[in-house]
Write a protein that binds this DNA or RNA. Structure first.
Lengths: 191, 191, 191, 191
DNA sequence: ATCTAATCGAGACGGTACGTCGGGTCTTCGG
DNA sequence: CCGAAGACCCGACGTACCGTCTCGATTAGAT
């Protein structure tokens, strides 16, 4: 039983490109992230990038998907505590200039490319959000969440404010802020 | 007591530039919005744009600030109804491809230019959010909102989910959705 | 008695490459004659071309050498008539857009590659010119050509003008023109 | 009475481009003559080249036209001597590797671009050939040239062999060779 | 009612990056 | 074990815009 079509793709080049893309982003920011710069630093021809990706946006996405480990939320039984942990994580990510640069770049690309936007949602974010929904469903079964609330809406209730604050720079992104968001959300979904 | 420095600025050109910027955005999208295109269509030299704006981002911002009328939330006494109205408005704006194109473009520019981001927040969004906060404060005084909640957080609770869904394309942007968001938020802040 | 080193070269591929090269030249001209195009159309890997030729110039040369039959000038006894025949032939070749395309391509390659230039001279042109020299020598023996003229110079006197006119596009390439050239040349070498 | 439309073209850039083009040709040869290299060395944007020229071929042509001084053949009364002088000049030009590199490059471009070919003929060569024709006509009037010969054909008789030998590398390009060519041609046109 | 200097439309300029093409080399895999 | 297939690195192509910089030609304020 043969595996998938044996691609002749050069794995060394693929890794180099993804690594360099993230390096450039954290080092010099989005404005210096050009396909030419990636190719040059990775010791790769531009065509090798265009052969496998639609543009730098797709490269960043792949880099992040590659980097993102499996994310499973803990279930300590204390729903509030578990949510605080995950929201704190997201807030920290947005607060870190290094990590934030990546998100910023990907968001820009996403806003200008619908197809990329769909892939970012499906391949990068869906797994993370699904993990949260799983934890929420457990909480719902445990009676800590009203039975009639739409869990997807709860997810947006938890992360929407964080995105809002990050995008609009309307306030600090701290643990305390994360806790406040969770507290309000918990109030909204408590039975 | 003299007024501000009497500018020799050509008002006709200024109007043309702002109008053309929005036209191009809704007609052909962000990728075709270049300073050269604006100048050409507006019958204006490029220098006239760079003389008065830092770049196309600043032009869009000015165009939107110009277009945005005074926004004062109604106070019907029914806080939920009033919030539904405003959130429905925002959702409708994001759902409309034409209007959304403008927001999309400005968001891209914002993500790549910190100074512009600050101006967008202060000149474009703050007034809108302030109007909401005003209405919330009235509700708080009327005992419809718990006294200990941070109103800025409530605002994020209302609009964050909308931004989240718009940015990540995780679901439809409809009136029903707006109502759902408000309902959850109201549950979170009810005394 | 064994023949030459038994090459493992694929004759079918060799023929296909040479044929395709000439086809492409007459169909789409020099600018579309790329090694990649030849390989693709011939159903051959690029390496197979580079393995056996230095580049597309060498391919064209081989194709022409392959195509060029043995050329022996007739000797009707009338030197003028015989020369008219051969010069008319050359002029016709240059006048034909199809055949001319090949010459044009080979000339370009020749001008940029000294080694190729030598091979073109020795393998493609020398035999043709030698045939003319042979005829001239016969004429010289018959007393139709002055004994002191350098026959190589006469050859240039016959074909130089044709090349000149072809290269510089300074006039039509017709039989009448060919005859005129021969007439002048005959006047130059008549005893 | 106004002059021609006042072009805003930058003369300094124009000169730099033409100079650099010839420099590169004589220094490193045709294969290193790229539009990018010219632009870089001339301290000029590529667009400035493409704005005013169709490609590097047109640049070389302009450079040569610029460099070519007015060429008027001397008329010493001795037609043979005068022709020897001019043919020797052409032969020397072809023999000089430096100057020949320029001709080689322009010829390549010419063979691949019909429009350029016409311009080379009209702007660069015609003046030179016309000068020769003028001298020939004077000789004709003086009875040194048969009245029935086509002077354009005589010109080809003089220069054709030189081009032939240069292009095909069939022999040395020396003064003696030039003299031989003229001698033969003189024999062909003598009354 | 001039003067005069900022502003205007226009667009050339030096640059950077784009996305594509082809060159010549190297690797994989099927016949 | 050759050859088709084609990925690879590289360099140049010609184009699109960037933001700056002249150019006259208005043009509006101060004189």
């Amino acid at each position: 039983m043969p595996g998938p079509a044996p691609s002749r793709r050069n794995e060394r080049s693929r890794r180099a490109i993804l690594t360099v893309a993230l390096d450039l982003l954290t080092e010099t920011g989005y404005s210096d992230l050009t396909v030419e710069a990636i190719a040059a630093r990775a010791g790769v021809g531009k065509q090798t990038i265009y052969r496998w990706w639609r543009g730098k946006g797709a490269v960043i996405l792949d880099a992040l998907v590659d980097a993102a480990g499996d994310i499973a939320l803990p279930d300590t039984g204390d729903l509030g505590a578990d949510l605080r942990a995950v929201v704190r994580g997201t807030v920290a990510e947005f607060a870190d200039p290094r990590l934030s640069a990546t998100t910023r770049a990907l968001t820009i690309e996403t806003l200008a490319d619908d197809e990329l936007a769909d892939q970012v949602r499906d391949r990068l974010l869906r797994p993370q959000l699904d993990a949260v929904r799983l934890r929420l469903r457990a909480g719902q079964r445990a009676g800590q969440v009203r039975g009639d609330v739409d869990l997807d809406q709860v997810i947006e209730l938890l992360f929407g404010p964080v995105y809002h604050r990050w995008l609009l720079r309307t306030g600090p992104l701290t643990d305390a802020y994360a806790d406040g968001v969770v507290e309000l959300a918990m109030a909204a979904i408590a039975p």
